[in-house]
């Protein structure tokens, strides 16, 4: 049931999108709107990888490369 709800949400979310033209992306192109992690936040992610068991799915490390979890 949970999987079904998840798929419905995904499909609904996706199908509700309208195509935004390049000249309409002024607001989306604001650096604060970037969907990636900001460069300055990389160290924050690093110490969280060391101090917490969960990692990944944020553009940072998900394990390996260090003696961390």
């Amino acid at each position: 049931m949970k999987n079904l709800i998840m798929i419905i949400i995904l499909v609904t979310f996706f199908s509700s999108c309208s195509t935004v033209k390049e000249y309409e992306k002024v607001n989306l192109n604001d650096p604060d709107m970037a969907l990636t992690q900001m460069q300055i936040d990389r160290f924050e992610t690093n110490y969280q990888v060391y101090r917490e068991a969960a990692a990944g799915a944020n553009g940072g490390k998900s394990g390996g490369g260090c003696g961390c979890n």
Binding site: C17, V20, L28
Partner: peptide, 10 residues
């Protein structure tokens, strides 16, 4: 990554 409208994306 998906643009939803002129002001939001995920």
């Amino acid at each position: 990554a998906q643009i939803l409208n002129k002001n939001s994306q995920f």
